[in-house]
Amino acid sequence: QVTPQEKEAIERLKALGFPEGLVIQAYFACEKNENLAANFLLQQN
């Protein structure tokens, strides 16, 4: 279960064009650090 703040962060990451499953994995792998997760996702392409 995610908090409203976490859900907002996940939605912002999804808005970058990444699928939800990948976003969630990256977000939690980066210890819920939205900026770190965004950098991680962008570097995967």
Rank of each mutant, 00 (worst) to 15 (best):
Q1Y: 03
Q1G: 07
Q1K: 13
Q1F: 07
Q1I: 09
V2S: 10
V2M: 15
T3R: 06
T3L: 12
T3Q: 08
Q5P: 11
Q5G: 11
Q5E: 12
Q5I: 10
Q5K: 14
E6T: 07
K7H: 10
K7F: 07
K7W: 10
K7A: 14
K7Q: 15
K7V: 13
K7I: 07
E8V: 10
A9N: 09
A9K: 12
A9R: 05
A9S: 10
I10V: 09
I10K: 01
I10S: 00
I10D: 00
I10R: 01
E11K: 07
E11D: 10
E11G: 07
E11N: 15
R12I: 01
L13G: 02
L13C: 00
L13F: 01
L16S: 05
G17D: 07
F18L: 06
F18W: 14
F18H: 09
P19L: 02
P19D: 14
P19F: 07
P19R: 07
E20H: 12
E20Q: 06
E20A: 03
E20C: 07
G21S: 11
G21T: 15
G21P: 15
G21V: 11
L22D: 15
L22G: 04
L22Q: 15
V23E: 02
V23M: 05
I24K: 14
I24R: 13
I24G: 08
I24P: 09
I24T: 11
Q25C: 03
Q25E: 13
Q25A: 06
Q25T: 10
A26D: 04
A26G: 03
A26Y: 13
Y27N: 02
Y27D: 04
Y27Q: 01
Y27I: 02
F28N: 15
F28T: 13
A29S: 09
A29K: 10
A29F: 02
A29V: 04
C30K: 08
C30L: 05
C30Q: 07
C30W: 05
E31C: 06
E31G: 06
E31W: 03
E31F: 04
E31R: 07
E31L: 04
K32F: 03
K32A: 06
N33E: 08
N33P: 00
N33S: 10
N33R: 08
E34G: 02
E34F: 04
E34K: 02
N35I: 13
N35S: 09
N35G: 13
N35H: 12
L36M: 13
L36C: 11
L36R: 14
L36K: 14
L36T: 12
A37P: 00
A37K: 00
A37W: 00
A38S: 12
A38Q: 14
A38R: 14
A38E: 15
N39V: 05
N39R: 11
N39E: 13
N39K: 13
N39L: 06
F40L: 09
F40C: 10
F40N: 14
L41T: 01
L42E: 15
L42N: 12
L42Y: 10
L42R: 15
Q43V: 07
Q43S: 11
Q43G: 13
Q43R: 13
Q44I: 05
Q44C: 04
Q44S: 08
Q44A: 06
Q44D: 08
N45T: 12
N45M: 00
N45K: 14
